[in-house]
Design a binder for these strands. Structure first.
Lengths: 345, 345
DNA sequence: ATCGTTACCGTAATCGATTTCGGAACCCAA
DNA sequence: TTGGGTTCCGAAATCGATTACGGTAACGAT
């Protein structure tokens, strides 16, 4: 079945496309009779406006591009979900791409999105992204960009992030409140601001409670995965005076540490308390359930999408756009793994 | 910065857009001198063809729509990942939407995708989808559709699915091979073919090994979540003769069962062996690690996308398209939860 | 001198919808 | 009959790129 066009309707009624268009769009300057006739044949021919023609005319794609490092990651799934909800409500669509944490792929998909046609971009930078020229290029084309999660200060664009510093501070303070004094930290690689902020939040919490920052209680997780947690916890436990609590940069690392601790016969939380970051679903499924700091992924997606849509509309209206930096708090999800030895949480 | 058009180049060189287009597209009938001049000013003006104009002319969007019930689900993240990989390699993009397992939303996003402009659709049906009119409509518009995971036989379209029957059969047989004879099954809701096939595979394996199918060993999980597993396992263990193995329809349910079993003081796998379905990452993180049947999500995405892209190209070439039904095997990932009591796996 | 060929480029139609402008037809009043 | 005012609709430009077609010039061949 061929797609019906304005001309098909026009020809079958022996009128012009202009009249047909007026009828369909509810403009004045048209008689009730012809209007009804047009609407009838439009329905009969199952007419629908051709998307490309409309967009070419309107100079609007009704599409926002999204770049995430990794779709599979539960946090990003959450964010994407939030994005989709907001933009669909606004009549936009989501073009989804992933960078695989590669700067090269990030620039490539960014260019592809621009060439394919988008009204704006939502992006979480890859870990090894250092320059943001590929994004300033977008802005030069008058395309708004909103960053989320992993952002660059070099780009004059709005952003939505988790308060990693506060989250780490709260996580560490939570352990302190549970009576722990020898608190170790398994950090991530330097580079992404997230892991740095989490380490700084950890250090600040120690300082705020006059606890020493011991170098032997610091470990670094290269790939932020399960096995890194195993290795770090094993190292910690081999110390003459092992820590009585561990704050891990991510849940995967925390659960790795948990595995190692159980393997070594340490009780959690009696001997060692444990808390992670991100609040993956798996935290509730392991034994004991692992405490974590919940990142508001869905909300991050919603806010970022909202900022972007607003910028798109503002530019179209000619209104000046003000850059906005949203910081959302991470919230404590205390579970058994960080309960105080006496029992209460 | 305004976007440069063919006319901008043409005017600055005092030639026509036709000549400019020829130069840029490498057509003959053009002198080396003008060609170079055009290329030079095109680069100077940072010319890029306008996506909508090209697509309107070419009648091709270079976009495929994707509808999944739930982006957050790890299986679908996997599938999406596979889809993205294939279509990007083919120069296409992915428009992602989700149905939230609602038939109404599924028809809505399907219509939106059609109106927005796609060259084809990849879809996993929602659980409560019974009719496929919204998809046959697409086909009437000459848009190819490929189904994956949850498919309908009513739609004359290619499909890519996991062999749930074989997977369930293998899972059950695995338990039998480990010396189990009283094997219970926690099923999902009737409706989706997947859960039905898994139940049938389970029943077939019992029959193949001359084991009775006991009604008291059958439970149904309404929402296929953790708590359903807890409830079912608790019921099973209250039986005069509880089962010595449980095959759960999903990993979430299996891990729920695991939680309950540990709560009840039953040892896994010594007292009760356990196996799930889907092979989520969490299977390796719980204690003991839970056996599961791995669904090839990434591969499903790849194959489905491949079929779709091939259909798109075939239609454009006028070649007839043959419907293809791909069934990919689920593979056993045996872990400690289903080890035989004697110790070996 | 005439014709045919080649090289090069412009004209204009096309994709489909939108929108401005102008004009025909009609009615009523003068 | 003429003028002013509606009402309704067609012509044509526009968005930007693509492409079939036609035309001009230059050149060599007969």
């Amino acid at each position: 079945m061929k797609r019906a066009t304005l001309r098909d309707i026009a020809q079958s009624l022996h009128i012009t496309v202009a009249t047909v268009s007026r009828a369909l769009k509810g403009y004045p300057d048209i008689s009730a009779a012809t209007k009804e006739a047009v609407l009838a044949t439009a329905k009969a021919l199952r007419y629908e406006p051709h998307p490309m023609a409309v967009k070419l005319r309107q100079q609007a794609y009704k599409v926002v591009g999204v770049v995430v490092p990794d779709i599979i990651h539960p946090f990003f799934s959450d964010v994407i979900s939030g994005i989709v909800e907001v933009v669909e409500a606004e009549g936009y669509h989501v073009l989804l791409t992933q960078s695989n944490e590669s700067f090269e792929k990030e620039t490539r998909v960014t260019r592809m999105l621009r060439e394919t046609g988008i009204d704006g971009l939502l992006i979480c930078l890859a870990n090894d992204t250092t320059t943001v020229e590929h994004l300033t290029t977008l802005q030069e084309y008058d395309l708004p960009v909103v960053q989320f999660d992993k952002v660059s200060a070099d780009l004059p664009a709005s952003s939505v992030v988790t308060d990693d510093f506060q989250g780490a501070f709260d996580a560490t303070e939570h352990l302190i409140r549970q009576g722990r004094t020898r608190i170790a930290h398994i950090s991530g690689v330097e580079g992404p601001a997230n892991t740095r902020q989490r380490r700084l939040g950890y250090e600040a919490a120690l300082a705020a409670h006059s606890l020493p920052l011991l170098p032997e209680y610091q470990a670094t997780s290269k790939h932020v995965v399960h096995t890194d947690g195993v290795a770090a916890a094993t190292t910690f436990m081999a110390l003459p005076q092992p820590p009585d609590a561990i704050f891990a940069v991510t849940d995967a690392v925390a659960i790795g540490a948990l595995t190692a601790l159980k393997q070594l016969g340490r009780r959690v939380p009696e001997d060692v308390a444990l808390i992670g970051f991100s609040n993956w679903a798996v935290c509730e499924l392991v034994e004991p359930p692992v405490s974590s700091m919940a990142q508001p992924g869905f909300e991050i997606g919603r806010r970022a999408a909202d900022l972007l849509v607003r910028e798109i509309k503002a530019r179209r209206a000619g209104t000046p756009v003000e850059v906005e930096h949203v910081v959302l708090p991470a919230t404590l999800r205390a579970r058994a793994s960080s309960a105080s030895p006496s029992g209460e949480r």
